[in-house]
Design a protein around this nucleic acid. Sequence first.
DNA 1: GAAATAAAACCGTCCAGACGGTATGTTTCG
DNA 2: CGAAACATACCGTCTGGACGGTTTTATTTC
Lengths: 186, 186
Amino acid sequence: MKTAHHRKKQPEAVRQLLLGVTAGLCVEKGASGVTLDAVAAAAGVSKGGLLHHFPSKAALLDGLLDDLIDRLDAAIHRAMTDDPEPRGRFTRAYLKVCFVPGGMAEEERWKAMTMALLGEPHLRQRWRRWVEDRSALHAGTDLSINCELVRFATDGLWLASLLESHRLDPAREQALMHRLVELTRT
Amino acid sequence: MKTAHHRKKQPEAVRQLLLGVTAGLCVEKGASGVTLDAVAAAAGVSKGGLLHHFPSKAALLDGLLDDLIDRLDAAIHRAMTDDPEPRGRFTRAYLKVCFVPGGMAEEERWKAMTMALLGEPHLRQRWRRWVEDRSALHAGTDLSINCELVRFATDGLWLASLLESHRLDPAREQALMHRLVELTRT
DNA sequence: GAAATAAAACCGTCCAGACGGTATGTTTCG
DNA sequence: CGAAACATACCGTCTGGACGGTTTTATTTC
């Protein structure tokens, strides 16, 4: 790829591209399909270039997690400020961000990340930390049994979409969402 | 089957051992830690021996899934026959099997399996088939929104235990379970 | 403001080790 | 014996990543 030399350099764009390609590859070919060669090739970058942005494979996955946690935090925060009712606010935001179309735009990447997460003990721990932190942070408003239930159901729904399990029809999904939101208010 | 005197080799036992070791390795070292060499070493068997029982790595993982699906079906069936109430019977059994201590003894192996499942598109599809089949099979008794909700929550709970997220205290867990069972009856 | 210099953003190659798998023994058991 | 249950040795490929070069961009200097 000779043109790469003469192209205008946009390191941040390349970085994002690499993360996106990593995520996509993870979904399509599975966790074992994520190799430096494959990522570099799919992104139209040499392996050396890839290793310039992320000095190791672990750094690449860590970078992906960092990026996505930031986005998730931002999306949740956005959803929470739109919600006047304090009780169960975080739980509703969590639900909304995960499943309302515009909530979390990068669904594909999250799928990928979840897979890598479950596969790699190190990432698993980092994720666990995030969950604990957020849980403690919103203990004041989202501690009820029902809220906890809703959050677990959200995770379950999420897992189902990840596994591409039986897609329930939209009407039913709508009803389920409504019921879940309802539960956060009791 | 067991003539303790002259039976030195117990191929079936070795087979089970290999599956167990595979599962354990997957949990401890992550999906990438599952290599034929590692499995063979951890089981105290040569790689040739391992490949005698499972002619390929894919066959090993498939075998693990087969084995666990059989166990899951059996456990669910057992739980269902103990339940007099038809409505939501399957959902309650699903919940019980996943979280009552004696329900599903092989928790470690299920954790491993889920990871491998999410990582490998092929296994993902096989699992999806199982979910669809069971869902259709019990459509008569477990079709309500609440049942679906409970099943999703079960998956979420299970995912949390997989990630070793914040272990909620037993009393709270008990309350949550009670609430979930309650929901299956409405 | 242009030349000089530093630094960042890449490329292409090579390699040591790991990995899945084969091919070929050797022991054990019915 | 003969087949199943293992072990040993080995091979081709792939993978992570180290390394040295080249080109683009930013900064300083005069």
